[in-house]
């Protein structure tokens, strides 16, 4: 009877290469957070275009959203990294290509998230601002946007987790993110089970961390105020109001 080969899991590899793996995860975080910041701005811009009175702007925004929402991250990054170079002779670094690919993709999702959040703000809010004689910019900045952001923030958090995960496809252009690092270690030790499990664990840990951070942000945007962070940040203002209440 043939003997089943004994499974030999080299779990110590995870510990031995902890610095490399964590650096890979950090790279994923970095690319994703840069892309997140850019996508939020680009997404908001397209959301506003989608809500514009002018059909041309609405058309441009809808086309943008439908095109880039439909392209997978892998295809997008290959196109940006290799395609751009072929067409225009300009070479992005892998880091830049990753950020651009993610931004194109996720800004189209954010455009939809912001549009629905902005539309969810009750129309009486804008009317109240108008009736008080506030400028359009002021109404947007101080009344509509804070309420819309609070509605959008859980979705933004989920999207950010998606962005971190999508960086794993950038291994094809050689971005030294987590999967890339893991595969290099695997090439040497051939321990796919151990290394993929480690990668999965790290991605899940990252998701928990992001969730935790976004909950704090959500608490800060919520009203009435929730959470110690918000109370801490508003302590001076509250003391000032307390003085006013006592003085009058």
């Amino acid at each position: 009877m043939e003997e089943t080969p004994r499974l030999n899991f080299m779990w110590h590899l995870v510990w031995d290469f902890r610095a490399e793996l964590l650096r890979g995860l950090l790279t994923a975080f970095e690319v994703a957070i840069t892309a997140l910041i850019l996508s939020l701005f680009v997404g908001l811009l397209f959301a506003l275009m989608k809500m514009s009175r002018f059909a041309l702007w609405r058309g441009i925004a809808s086309t943008y959203v439908n095109v880039f929402r439909g392209i997978p991250a892998l295809v997008s990054v290959v196109w940006v990294y290799f395609g751009w170079s072929l067409l225009f002779g300009y070479n992005f670094t892998v880091y830049q290509a990753g950020v651009i690919a993610l931004t194109l993709l996720y800004s189209s999702f954010f455009a939809e998230i912001f549009r629905s959040a902005l539309e969810a703000v009750h129309k009486g809010q804008r009317e109240a601002g108008q009736a008080l004689g506030m400028s359009r910019l002021r109404i947007f900045r101080s009344i509509v946007m804070p309420q819309a952001l609070k509605i959008a923030i859980p979705n933004i958090g989920s999207m950010y987790i998606g962005m971190i995960k999508d960086t794993s496809t950038f291994t094809v252009i050689g971005l030294a993110e987590l999967v890339f690092v893991m595969q290099s270690i695997n090439a040497e030790y051939f321990q796919p089970f151990v290394l993929f499990t480690a990668a999965a664990g790290l991605y899940v840990a990252a998701a928990f961390l992001v969730d935790f951070v976004f909950r704090i942000v959500e608490g800060g945007l919520s009203y009435p105020k929730v959470g110690r962070v918000k109370r801490f940040l508003t302590r001076r203002k509250r003391a000032q109001i307390q003085r006013l209440v006592e003085a009058n």
């Binding site: 009317e127 009736a131 008080l132 506030m134 400028s135 101080s142 804070p146 309420q147 006013l244």
Partner: peptide, 28 residues
């Protein structure tokens, strides 16, 4: 120059009572 009061109040839910007023005074 014209103030308005709505049936549904339309206070800004993300601001405290005093900030609802203070924002308006500051902004306008």
């Amino acid at each position: 120059q014209v103030g308005m009061v709505f049936q549904q109040f339309n206070l800004f839910p993300h601001l405290s009572a005093i900030d609802n007023i203070a924002l308006s005074v500051h902004a306008v």
